[in-house]
């Protein structure tokens, strides 16, 4: 177990393509940090640089108190779980688990004991003598995790480990990974593009965009106080509604709440925070027609075509909306639920 310290790390691919630019991140011992971002944001590259599968152009990666820039993946004492599991197809599950330990010349008795222990934790004891192809996706995923656990490494690196599973199994495995990580207390870095997975798993969430870190923090903090337009749009589903203040100002009979900073020219509001009834605090009122209703079980997503505003507004309504599609509707934005941004920099202002 160890902390991971990433200082001023850059990655430039041949052809002068900069995948990561001057990135700093401290991951403390036992923490589960999730890297999340759209594809091509550099999250996998960063993970692979920590693993040693990708060279580091500049900067420094420390695992524990050792600089690992020049070390082979095996010498870094990390274990990695791959998206497609990468199990050795010709070896039995047991041999798959043993392989890394054998290469490390671990004594036989200890290998046996560690493999059995990992198999017990992951409930794959029954499958130890099977070949990977005889296992289902979820079982393979467990074996891949087992291969990481038996090594008792300083850190686990997960590279989108659940994206090959179906939705139901994904939810189940997500919980198991979280539980496992809590009980083993191994420092973990987890890469995903699924923001739900990111929100639920992370002790700390790192949102990445175009090779830079947009924001680091607890999932709830990122949700409640996104530091930039990008984070606001990426975290939360359905995404935040963003309105131009200039447009809102021109709506008939609208006074903007005094709490909006003078510098801001955009405001955002979560679909859950839009009200159908007038709130007690200052607010901005909107009117429009219901364009589309998506019932998603316990709640409904309502898309509203607002008068005087071009973009559709998304509203999350608990239960069912009384009005049908095409009906006229009033929406209220409470001042306390507004997020203010400056469009030029994309940053949040208070």
């Amino acid at each position: 177990m160890a902390s991971i310290k990433i200082s001023s790390v850059r990655k430039v691919y041949p052809g002068n393509v900069e995948a990561i630019s001057d990135l700093n991140l401290d991951i403390s011992d036992g923490e589960l940090v999730v890297l999340v971002g759209p594809s091509g944001c550099g999250k996998s590259t960063l993970l692979r640089m920590i693993a040693g599968l990708e060279s580091i152009t500049a900067g420094e990666v420390r695992i524990g108190d050792k600089v690992v820039n020049k070390l082979e993946p095996a010498e870094r004492d990390i274990a990695m779980v791959f998206q497609n599991y990468a199990l050795y197809p010709h070896m039995s599950v047991r041999q798959n688990l043993e392989y890394g330990l054998k290469n490390r010349r671990t004594p036989k008795a200890e290998i046996e004991q560690r493999v059995n222990e990992a198999a017990r934790i992951l409930e794959i004891t029954r499958f130890l003598d099977r070949k990977p192809r005889q296992l289902s996706g979820g079982q393979r995923q467990r074996v891949a995790m087992g291969r990481a656990i038996v090594r008792q490494p300083k850190a686990f690196l997960f590279d989108e480990p659940l994206s090959n599973l179906d939705a139901k199994l994904r939810g189940q495995m997500r919980i198991e990974i979280k539980r496992l990580q809590r009980s083993l207390k191994t420092t973990s870095v987890y890469v995903t593009h699924d923001q739900l997975e990111a929100m639920t798993l992370a002790d700390r969430l790192v949102v990445m965009n175009a090779g830079r870190i947009e924001q680091v923090g607890k999932p709830v903090d990122l949700f409640e106080r996104p530091a930039s337009l990008f984070v606001a749009g990426f975290i939360g589903s359905p995404p935040m509604n963003i309105f131009e203040l200039a447009t809102l100002r021109q709506l008939p009979g609208t006074t903007l709440p005094a709490s909006i900073p003078a510098k801001a020219d955009l405001v955002g509001i979560r679909p859950e925070a839009l009200r159908l009834e007038e709130p007690a605090e200052p607010f901005i009122a909107l009117e429009g027609t219901v364009e589309l209703i998506e019932p998603v079980g316990g709640e409904s997503h309502v898309y509203v075509n607002l008068n005087g505003i071009e973009t559709l507004a998304t509203v999350v309504v608990q239960g069912r909306l009384a009005e049908g599609e095409g009906s006229h509707i009033k929406l209220f934005m409470p001042a306390s639920a507004l997020h203010s941004f400056v469009s030029e920099t994309g940053q949040r202002v208070e």
Partner: peptide, 14 residues
């Protein structure tokens, strides 16, 4: 052959 197989082997110390 998937590249991850080689990477997994590298991580496994081969």
């Amino acid at each position: 052959v998937p590249e991850e197989l080689m990477e997994a082997a590298r991580v496994d110390g081969a």
